[in-house]
Simulated scan of single mutants.
Amino acid sequence: MAAATATNDSLWQTIRDEARRAMAADPVFGKSLADAVLVHDDFGAALADLIGRRLGGDATERARFTAFALDAFRGSPELIEAAGRDLQAIVRSDPAIASLLAPLLHFKGYVALQAWRVSHWLWRHDHRDAALLFQNEASNVLQVSIHPAAQIGASVYLDHATGIVIGANVVIGDEVTLLQNVSIGRSSELPTRSPRIGRGVYIGAGATILGDISIGDFAKIGAGTIVTSDVPGGCTAVGNPARLTNCPEPASVA
Results as ranks from 00 to 15, higher is better:
R199H: 15
T208H: 04
L70P: 03
A251G: 12
S93D: 11
G173Y: 08
D212P: 04
L87E: 05
R21G: 10
L190A: 13
S76A: 14
E61G: 13
G56T: 09
V39D: 07
L100M: 12
W121H: 06
R92N: 13
H127Y: 09
S187W: 11
C247H: 02
K220M: 03
T228D: 03
I146D: 00
I90E: 01
G211Q: 03
R92Y: 10
A25Y: 06
I221Q: 01
G206P: 01
A242E: 02
P241F: 01
A72M: 08
R117K: 13
H106Q: 14
I51V: 09
A254T: 10
D174I: 10
D159S: 02
I146E: 01
F65G: 00
A149G: 15
D41Y: 02
T228M: 09
G234A: 05
A219W: 00
V165D: 00
V156K: 05
D174Y: 12
L142G: 00
V227C: 05
R16W: 10
A46N: 10
V37Y: 01
D71Y: 08
A102M: 12
P148I: 13
L38R: 05
A25K: 09
I97A: 12
Q135N: 07
D41Q: 08
L190G: 10
H147E: 09
A6P: 11
G75Y: 09
R21W: 11
D42M: 02
L101C: 03
I203T: 00
Q13S: 15
H160T: 04
V253T: 12
L70I: 10
Y110P: 09
V118H: 04
A72G: 05
D35R: 09
N8Y: 11
I152A: 01
G224H: 02
P27D: 07
D86S: 10
A83V: 01
N140C: 14
V238G: 07
F73V: 12
A150T: 11
I226D: 00
D26V: 05
R124G: 05
G57C: 13
I90K: 01
Y157K: 06
A219V: 01
E137D: 11
K108C: 06
R196E: 13
A115L: 12
R64G: 04
V91M: 11
P103L: 11
P248Q: 10
P248C: 11
T228I: 10
Q88A: 14
D126N: 15
L104F: 05
G30W: 07
I90S: 03
D42L: 05
P232M: 06
V156H: 03
S32C: 07
S32Q: 07
R16I: 09
